[in-house]
Design a protein around this nucleic acid. Sequence first.
RNA 1: UGGGCCGUCGCCAAGCGGUUAAGGCACCGGGUUUUGAUCCCGGCAUUCGGAGGUUCGAAUCCUCCCGGCCCAGCCA
Length: 553
Amino acid sequence: MTQDDSHVGANFIRNLIDADQKSGKHDGRVTTRFPPEPNGYLHIGHVKSICLNFGVAEHYNGSCNLRFDDTNPAKESEEYVNAIKADVKWLGFEWDELRHASDYFDQLHDFAVDLIKQGKAYVDSSSAEEMRQMRGTLTEPGRESPYRNRTVEQNLELFAGMKAGDFDDGEHILRAKIDMSSGNINLRDPALYRIRKISHVRTGDKWNIYPMYDFTHCLSDAIEDITHSLCTLEFEDHRPLYDWVIDQLDTPSHPQQIEFARLHLEYTMLSKRRLIQLVNDNLVDGWDDPRMPTILGLRRRGYTPAALKDFCERIGITKNDSVIEMAVLETCIRDDLNTHAERRLAVLDPIKVVITSLADDHAQELTFKNHPQDDSAGTRPYTFTKEVYIEREDFAENPPPKYQRLIPGGEVRLRGCYVIKCTEVIKNSDGDVIELHCTHDPDTLGKKPEGRKVKGVVHWVSAKTAVPATVRLYDQLFNTPNPAAEASFEAALSPNSVTVLSNALVEPSLAQAPAETRFQFERTGYFVADRNEHSESNPVFNRVVTLRDVWAK
RNA sequence: UGGGCCGUCGCCAAGCGGUUAAGGCACCGGGUUUUGAUCCCGGCAUUCGGAGGUUCGAAUCCUCCCGGCCCAGCCA
């Protein structure tokens, strides 16, 4: 491919920036920021925003800051700050500068005083309830507060009192003086500063007042010289306010706010509130539960940064309120792991097979390729012995139509080994199959059998060398494409979102693998050694995703 | 019924007045294969929410209509 690939990853925002570049706006500089509020863990919706912001900066050789929007000390904590930093790093992005909205509290305060002096902000002493009453409705204009025409001096004095801690929470509030009859409710004298007598993670007890988002975000962007402030669609209505604030004040720059659609993914839930509920109500095992759509959960599930970035690339950036099918995400991780994960053999639900044609002490060293298409992945030794285990579902006494596996009297190939024939089915007193007796065809190692076709291939482990392991199979957390639309989201929880197999048998190299190593267990799916629980003495694997399975359909 | 935004294949998404309306996912064939995987090859919108209009020419411009999303926190 020698062609121009500047169009890949193109979207309406990039088109817009291209136009800016052409017109020389910002002198061609591009600076973005990813601005999470540290009040929860990041999820795949944030990944979209992270990839966009860092991706755009990278594309134009610009920079991207990580900025914590920490203006509400009641909800924020250091725990979240650290988790967010770790998540962004894990995704492979490096921020240009690490900032906090709280870094600007002094400047923000001065800007507020400036606004008051200009007669464009006033202290309102109405209660929250009164303010709500006077705000009007979607179809009726609001009414002006009786405090709206306080003098500059009164406002300055009151605001200073708020700052000094002379008043209690809710007694006064600083509001912008814009237009109580605006069709855009955000312009009906929005709150700028509220009294909150609680300490802040970073500024401690210095402040008794904290700035609101609408006042903070635009000014923080301006202070950091952000060129393109990318945010989600629900802030479209706030853009006139974003511009208003900056227009009234003497700021270093006037960034452009551009909105794009949030991510919606089928069979999951990306609302922070709901996610917190899942954790708090113990409906999942914490923020890093492999079923969670959090970055931590996806990571523990076995997703890779590359797959998540590929996903963001594939879904695009638009203003369409779209819903992505899970298949897209799954395809991304399969693609990545198909090319990068080594193959291994693991029997999840074992049934014993005795090769009666072999000597009791038979131990034959075979060599298996670690990757069928990539020789650089090397090989590993594999031992064939008289007793092996195969998957219980790879044997059927009464096979369904087109079944290609082992049946009584039938033949199947042991992966990388010989073709075996089932000669006897051993059952217990309940009639359950507990063991199979087979003979092997010594002429089929690395060769097709003569005079007949054996289509089935099954994976196996040697009874002598296999290691017991715990394997967890995951499925969608919810049983409906749009759980958020359900009356009770607990009712939408799938009862079978996790299956723990504690009798699995895996090849020895798997137990020795470091945590977070990903493999393809041939024929069963992609798995990852659990980040928290896996060890050589207690191997634990999570299924990332199944293999594509045409037959299952 | 106020304000803002969105509607191109089952799901995403290019397209920006002249293209046979990209591409991906999904799906449906067929080939290779010691993973029912991978890989390969082929199929998959005479039509762009609808109706009018402008134009030699419209998914792209205009008008009206229909459908969907967001906004009434001293949250972000």
